[in-house]
Design a protein around this nucleic acid. Structure first.
Lengths: 232, 232
DNA sequence: GCCCCTTGTCACATACCTGTAACATCCCGC
DNA sequence: GCGGGATGTTACAGGTATGTGACAAGGGGC
């Protein structure tokens, strides 16, 4: 896979733990960066542009969760995958952690194998080919850099979920996806919502796209949905 | 979906809990088996081949985790998905649980909805996607990935049943099938419908294919139908 | 604390699919 | 050509899948 050679930033205030993780990841072919606080971490993110972050929940000064929120808020780093590290007994915060924008979370102590497995999974999900490319279909433009959608040069106002949904569709055109697959791909595997929720977001997306483009999102009855330029 | 009708084995020593889970799963369309200890569970696994197991961590005698390890060691059951049930406060065992081969774990108490959602997710991951090659015959293309039929580059609009019927025919060309064989293969063995219903769907499929391709589906008088490129 | 936006879910409306029956047509042996 | 069984064709009633609008909860900005 293309996973090898990816840069992973490890943020934890305890040096031995960082070290242990770094060793495990390097054995798995990753390149590691380390930071013991949020300030250093931020510099490294800006300067060295890691491909993902392992972020300890408990950090001196600014907490991990706050840092995660900050990263998700900023354009340039919003797409950076984050795995939260939480100590035993903090699991009640799981939901909060995931909602702060983390793509996964893992509880200490964890096995190196589990860590690597999750990291792979998150990287796989987070790396659609050409994330930075703007995609254009029939006058509908999705610009990941500006995080914005245009239909015939007019800005389209879509919510965050609809944006991700559209991005997924535009990077995976023509293929039919079930509601469950969409939940996996767009919502992330760790979230449990009703399948019908997909319908609602499809509806919101179609509405936002307007008459000119809503037919790009086709219903595949009995199966799910498809993004296609060809008429159904 | 194809999730319905899957058999789930519930292993827990407390009858009320088993019952509660069973009710929740049955409402979601699953078939439930129950066992209160590892011995019974093992027999059921061997005899009735469930599609997945909900396994309590704490069991009298052989513990759940040992049972999981055993199942994963044996050839015949290694692929069987397992979800571990753990009581709150046992969370430190999560890693151990996952390493023993469980595909997910869930902490009691849990909501029925979460249970069903996780179960679905695990089953989904465990179900290998079928062959997804597109088949082309005389300009008629069936593309399972896009879930779509094209005749000379024009999309053909077919309902779900006609789609399955066509897919069956295209993967089993040149051979004649009786109505009851088609009902078995396309509708699934356990349905009770009139044989003449096949005729109606054949008719719908032919109509959808249009003049250019309807002759691919040939009537074998006194027997049934056949998909063939050769004129009859 | 208050307000706005987003989100997931529900309830209801609608569109579509399905199986069946009824009738039409075809095919074959006689 | 006739009769009868087999198949083609159409219509329709009921069920299921999807579309749609509304709502309440929750988070973040102020």
């Amino acid at each position: 896979m293309t996973n090898a050679g990816k840069r992973v930033l490890i943020v934890d205030d305890e040096a031995p733990i960082r070290e242990m993780i770094a060793v495990a990841l390097e054995m798995a072919g990753y390149e590691c960066l380390e930071a013991e606080n949020v300030q250093d971490a931020h510099s490294l993110v800006v300067d060295l542009r890691p491909d993902m972050i392992l972020l300890d929940w408990m950090l001196p000064g600014v907490s991990g969760i706050e840092f995660a929120r900050r990263l998700k808020r900023e354009e340039a780093t919003a797409e950076l995958p984050i795995i939260m590290l939480t100590a035993k007994g903090e699991e009640e915060n799981k939901v909060q952690g995931l909602e702060s924008g983390a793509d996964d979370y893992i509880t200490k102590p964890f096995s190196p194998r589990e860590l690597v497995a999750r990291l792979k999974a998150v990287l796989r999900r987070a790396t659609p080919p050409g994330v930075e490319e703007t995609i254009e279909v029939n006058g509908l433009i999705l610009d990941p850099v500006c995080h914005r959608v245009m239909a015939h040069d007019k800005a389209v106002d879509v919510g965050p979920t609809e944006y991700r949904l559209l991005q997924f569709f535009m990077t995976h055109q023509e293929r039919a996806y079930s509601r469950s697959q969409l939940l996996d791909q767009v919502w992330g595997g760790n979230v449990y919502v009703e399948e019908r929720t997909v319908d609602v977001h499809i509806r919101r997306l179609r509405k936002a796209l307007g008459q000119s483009h809503e037919q790009l999102i086709q219903t595949v009855r009995g199966t799910g949905y498809r993004f296609s330029t060809k008429a159904s």
